[in-house]
Design a protein around this nucleic acid. Structure first.
Lengths: 109, 109
DNA sequence: TACCAGTAGATAGTAACACTGAATACCGGG
DNA sequence: CCCGGTATTCAGTGTTACTATCTACTGGTA
């Protein structure tokens, strides 16, 4: 899709993935496939991996290498306490934004 | 506010300003002040001006210089047809994102 | 055997965007 | 005459997602 979506994903994609990991641990390939199912058909695989590296470096997830029946070992990420804190902050920020935008869309102040 | 907001604004701030200009023409300083009223207290002035330059260069707005009683002349921006088209696209993209995020927040899917 | 498709991850380079910080310009009042 | 408020501009920075490519392992097939 368009450039608009690309720009809008900056900042939100991380939240989306944290929210997904809050439900259950997962690995990169799996997350990418899920995103495509959700309609984010144009998110590049490389993007997801890069993002996972970032959130790992910031200590928001725990990582475990799990051998796969097919292909190289999977890196399974699970949200830790720091990650849950970050996710909560994300929802707060997101909530503020959606509220403002909803008002704007109604033409209202 | 935090870095999260900064990143989330990428892509949306432009939509916010286009939406504002859809209601009535305005100039940079005015838009900045309005944003602060809306609670976006930490959006730098430079950011708004840079954004206005960008949307002007993309031909989404018409510009008119209007002398001010105080200070240098104002650059008043008004949304044109191209801008209205872009704004519509923005709402579509935004709608898609909010829908996905709302589902995610409900723990659903 | 040799090759390909599917699974899984890593990485170097690029573009876009918001931020910081400063500079410029114009006006009125103390 | 300088200072504070109005108004715009600009150079430099950091973060993020994209593109494109590379590695690695498995199973099926020609």
């Amino acid at each position: 899709m368009g450039k608009q979506m690309t720009e809008m994903l900056k900042g939100t994609l991380e939240g989306i993935i944290l929210a997904f990991l809050a439900a259950r641990p997962a690995y990169g390939y799996e997350i990418t496939a899920w995103l495509r199912e959700q309609g984010f058909v144009d998110i590049a695989e490389g993007t997801v991996y890069a993002l996972l590296v970032r959130i790992e470096q910031r200590g928001l997830v725990d990582v475990e290498k799990v051998p796969s029946e097919k292909g190289p070992p999977r890196k399974v990420y699970s949200l830790n306490d720091a990650g849950r804190g970050d996710l909560e902050e994300f929802w707060t920020t997101w909530g503020f934004l959606t509220e403002r935008l909803a008002q704007l869309k109604q033409g209202g102040r």
